[in-house]
Computed example of a mutant assay.
Amino acid sequence: MKEQQIISAEVRNLGYSLVDIEREGRGLLRVTIENPDYERMITVEDCEKVSHQLTYTFAVENVPYERLEVSSPGLDRPIKTGDDFVRFAGLEIELKLRIAVGNRKNFKGVLQGLTSGSINTPDAKFSLLFEASDGSPAELEFSLSEVEKARLVPVIDFKGRKS
């Protein structure tokens, strides 16, 4: 937990928001960042700036790692917090639950946002509109504790600009 607090503080001090921290095999530490205003994309220079600062901080704080990777969340951004589930309401997501609901753990649909409770509290409930196996529209209500993984479904426009 100390590691997460160190990374979060350094990322915030540099003017970015922390999206995710992942530990992978062979000592890889992956840190995902974004701009707080969300409109400005993360650049290679942003990642380089955060990487240099974290490398220095890890040496001082004795945080173990072999390789550090700093990146933007990408088009299929992970959704982790209650704030994320509210922010991305109206967008299509892929949701995987920890425990199956009606013999199903994986859902793909339009996130409806907060339906009851307070954001980032155990009683918060969120909603997802999806297509049931019979093709009819259905709604799933869930809490953060029930979510194993959630990601945005990438929206890519290949039409290009008109001249």
Score class of each variant (00 low, 15 high):
Glu34Tyr: 02
Asn35Asp: 01
Pro36Lys: 10
Pro36Thr: 07
Asp37Lys: 14
Tyr38Cys: 14
Arg40Phe: 01
Arg40Cys: 00
Met41Asn: 03
Ile42Ser: 01
Thr43Trp: 02
Thr43Phe: 00
Val44Thr: 12
Val44Ala: 12
Glu45Pro: 12
Asp46Ala: 04
Asp46Gly: 05
Asp46Arg: 11
Glu48Phe: 04
Glu48Arg: 13
Glu48Asn: 13
Glu48Cys: 09
Val50Gly: 11
Val50Ile: 11
Gln53Ile: 06
Leu54Asn: 03
Thr55Trp: 04
Thr55Ile: 13
Thr57Ser: 15
Val60Arg: 05
Glu61Arg: 15
Asn62Gln: 14
Val63Phe: 01
Val63Tyr: 04
Val63Cys: 14
Tyr65Leu: 15
Glu66Pro: 12
Glu66Ser: 15
Ser71Phe: 06
Ser71Ile: 08
Ser72Met: 03
Ser72Thr: 05
Pro73Phe: 01
Gly74His: 09
Gly74Trp: 01
Leu75Asp: 04
Arg77Thr: 05
Pro78Trp: 00
Ile79Pro: 09
Ile79Thr: 07
Lys80Thr: 02
Thr81Val: 09
Asp83His: 13
Asp84Pro: 07
Asp84Arg: 11
Val86Lys: 04
Arg87Phe: 10
Arg87Ala: 11
Phe88Gly: 03
Phe88Met: 02
Gly90Gln: 08
Glu92Val: 14
Glu92Ser: 14
Glu94Asn: 08
Lys96Trp: 00
Leu97Met: 10
Ile99Ala: 14
Ala100Ile: 04
Ala100Asn: 00
Val101His: 10
Asn103Ala: 07
Arg104Ile: 01
Arg104Asn: 03
Lys105Asn: 05
Lys105Ala: 00
Asn106Leu: 03
Asn106Lys: 05
Val110Tyr: 00
Gln112Val: 10
Gly113Cys: 08
Leu114Gln: 05
Leu114Ile: 12
Thr115Met: 03
Ser116Lys: 15
Ser116His: 11
Gly117His: 12
Ser118Met: 15
Asn120Ala: 06
Asn120Thr: 06
Thr121Gln: 13
Pro122Gln: 09
Asp123Tyr: 10
Ala124Pro: 13
Ala124Cys: 07
Ala124Asn: 11
Ala124Asp: 07
Lys125Gln: 15
Lys125Pro: 08
Phe126Glu: 08
Phe126Pro: 06
Phe126Asn: 09
Leu128Asn: 06
Leu128Arg: 12
Leu129Ala: 15
Leu129Pro: 10
Glu131Thr: 09
Ala132Pro: 13
Ser133Val: 02
Gly135Asn: 07
Ser136Thr: 11
Ser136Ile: 04
Pro137Arg: 01
Ala138Met: 02
Glu139Phe: 07
Glu141Trp: 00
Phe142Val: 14
Phe142Asp: 08
Leu144Ala: 02
Ser145Trp: 07
Glu146Arg: 11
Glu146Trp: 00
Val147Met: 09
Lys149Val: 07
Ala150Val: 11
Ala150Thr: 06
Ala150Cys: 14
Arg151Leu: 12
Arg151Met: 05
Leu152Ser: 02
Val153His: 06
Val155Phe: 10
Val155Arg: 14
Val155Tyr: 03
